[in-house]
């Protein structure tokens, strides 16, 4: 196992390099120009735009720029944002706490809802509980977050006036007041995101549990007179977890990557909104840094998932 892990980690380096090269080339080729906004301003002569391009090295060959980026990255220099004229790592670090708080909580909420609901629904398929759970799940993923977010705002901010809908990272309050305000402003985004995620999780969990609940060994366990709770937890859930682990591993990188639409609706200063504004402003260094960190997390969580498979089902062997 240790050997396997080591080998996977070694392979991860060139594979990340490959991904980073592809990302870099793609971003360099993608249309758009960070100094586009200057183009519509008649007071800014075109020479200035050209000078800026030269200054930020945008007219050099792509490969040269990639090597330059890679070397800087190895020295811990993440690049310099065209739009903000600030170091990229400062920008990202500023946004991590909020992202972890909102998106992380939403993921936990999603799992906390989906696991029990999915298992319970699968234990008695087509029962009333199952039907209700399914209906909610269908509503959950057939309505996009831009829609549910707005609906919540209309109900809870506009009509009832209970919750604020502009998220503020720098609350003025202190002590308990601060805690209360932070929770209050995060309720809607976490709900929107969490329930959207929970909807599909529930369906996957239900399906995974259904796959194993009628297998012979479960019936055997039950026939042995084992406590139903024990049967479900020890025999069913553990074996049903493989697809769930896969999904969670797929979703974990987004805890860092943020949720673009939801962050936009509630004005949450997370990584997602940083990424989208960087993309719209063609601020390549920021896009590159964020997507590269994201890629690292994707690779890492894929590895973790593989290791968990082995633990969940010892017959899965890795060589």
């Amino acid at each position: 196992m240790g050997n396997y892990l080591l080998r996977r980690l070694i392979v991860a380096v060139p594979s990340l390099l490959g991904i980073s090269l592809i990302l870099f080339v793609l971003l360099a080729l993608a249309p758009g120009d960070p100094f586009g906004e200057l183009a519509t301003n008649p007071n800014v002569p075109p020479e200035v735009r050209e000078a800026l391009r030269v200054k930020f090295g945008m007219n050099d060959p792509i490969l040269l720029r990639y090597v330059r980026w890679l070397i800087a990255m190895m020295h811990g220099d993440w690049g310099f944002s065209f739009a903000s004229r600030v170091n990229v790592d400062t920008l990202i670090l500023q946004r991590i706490p909020t992202t972890l708080y909102v998106v992380g909580t939403a993921q936990i909420l999603a799992l906390a809802v989906a696991l029990p609901v999915g298992v319970l629904a699968a234990r008695r398929p087509y029962s009333i509980f199952d039907q209700i759970a399914n209906t909610f799940a269908f509503i959950g993923f057939s309505l996009p977050t831009f829609f549910t977010g707005l609906l919540l705002i209309l109900i809870f901010s506009v009509n009832l006036g209970w919750l604020p809908f502009v998220y503020r990272a720098d609350l003025q309050a202190t002590g308990w007041q601060w805690w209360w305000e932070s929770i209050k402003q995060a309720i809607m985004p976490i709900t929107v995101l969490g329930l959207y995620q929970a909807a599909s999780y529930t369906r996957y969990v239900r399906s995974a549990v259904l796959d194993v609940i009628k297998l012979d060994y479960v019936t055997t366990a039950r026939a042995k007179g084992l406590d139903e709770r024990k049967v479900i937890v020890k025999h069913v859930v553990r074996n049903a977890l493989i697809p769930v682990v896969t999904l969670v591993a797929l979703q974990m990188p987004t805890v860092f990557g943020g949720a673009i639409v939801t962050e936009q609706i509630f004005r949450i200063p997370g990584i997602g909104s940083l990424l989208i504004s960087a993309i719209l402003a063609n601020d390549t260094p920021v896009i590159m840094a964020v997507t590269f960190v994201f890629a690292c997390l994707v690779v890492l969580f894929n590895l973790i998932a593989d290791i968990l498979y082995g633990w969940l089902d010892p017959r899965i062997s890795f060589r």
């Binding site: 490959g18 990302l23 793609l26 971003l27 993608a30 990188p253 993309i279 994707v298 894929n302």
Partner: peptide, 28 residues
């Protein structure tokens, strides 16, 4: 072994691609 690793690399790559710039590139 290698086939699995290569295919998973491809999957990881697609998962990490930033969709918006890629879409713009594809249109273009």
């Amino acid at each position: 072994g290698p086939v699995d690793a290569a295919l998973m690399w491809l999957t990881d790559l697609f998962l990490s691609l930033p969709q918006l710039p890629l879409l713009l590139l594809i249109i273009y």
